[in-house]
């Protein structure tokens, strides 16, 4: 089992990229689990026909101790296991603690041993703002981290901060940063800006995903691009990412 976390600035395209990656991996025959670590609970929406699945925290509140794994995990397109941590409404409570609670419950139910996914993909909200959002970086969760960024300044800043957080965790022997995923916004000089950042933090740009209106078109059809198409610039870029991730396993 390989566990991979995708971090990046809010709205940069983490959920879109993660969902397409899940599909490409699933199409290649792997068992994939995607866990949305975001109170919005919208990471896996395009894997479940646009339907929002009930977040783990909400199910736990309703069911208390009697909750079973199949209540927390929903099967989506290509058999992908979908789970959403969920969290409080904006402005109250502690979303970070929510992620910790959700993870602990998945552990308690032995989720990974039961479902036996080849890949677990964590789609993590925005910056690493507090300990809860660093949860996927800790021991026993994601070993590999990718940062999604565009060439926009704010996105690059966020990427740098995330890299800093990850490096602190890797010093403890936890997750390590494996690369940058460029999700293009067609900013001037975008490729170079992102390559420079990657060099600075000592990783590679794994793939350069084009900005493509096919994403919105498929979204309107409540689907990912990769479940509709096997080819095209967008899917090819995602496939590069998938192959890179798979090959890492073979290198081990």
């Amino acid at each position: 089992m390989r566990r991979i976390a995708l971090y990046g600035k809010g709205g940069i395209g983490k959920s879109t990229t993660t969902s397409n990656l899940s599909i490409v991996l699933a199409k290649k025959g792997y068992t994939v689990m995607q866990i949305g670590c975001d109170p919005k609970a919208d990471s896996t929406r395009m894997l479940t026909g646009g339907e929002r699945i009930t977040p783990i925290l909400k199910t736990l509140r309703q069911g208390k101790d009697g909750v079973t794994l199949d209540q927390l995990v929903t099967k989506g397109d290509y058999g992908i296991y979908c789970a959403e941590c969920g969290g409080p409404t904006p402005g109250v409570g502690c979303a970070g603690r929510g992620i910790i609670s959700a993870f602990e419950r998945l552990d308690a139910l032995n989720a990974f041993n039961e479902l036996k996914p080849d890949f677990v993909l964590y789609d993590v909200l925005g910056d690493v703002v507090c300990g809860g959002f660093a949860m996927p970086l800790r021991k026993g969760y994601a070993e590999e981290v990718y940062i999604v960024t565009s060439g926009e300044l704010m996105s690059l800043y966020a990427a740098e901060n995330i890299a800093l957080a990850v490096s602190q965790f890797s010093q403890k022997g936890y997750a390590r940063l494996c690369g940058i995923i460029q999700n293009s916004r067609n900013v001037e000089n975008e490729d170079k800006l992102i390559s420079d950042l990657a060099a600075e933090i000592g990783v590679r740009v794994v793939t350069r995903i084009p900005r493509d209106k096919v994403v919105q078109e498929c979204e309107s059809a409540r689907s990912t691009v990769a479940s509709f198409f096997d080819d095209g610039a967008y899917v090819r870029a995602i496939t590069v990412l998938a192959d890179e991730i798979i090959s890492k396993k073979e290198n081990r």
Binding site: G87, T89, G93
Partner: peptide, 8 residues
């Protein structure tokens, strides 16, 4: 824990 997470 639920009160903490949800800020209830």
């Amino acid at each position: 824990e639920d009160d903490v997470v949800m800020g209830s």
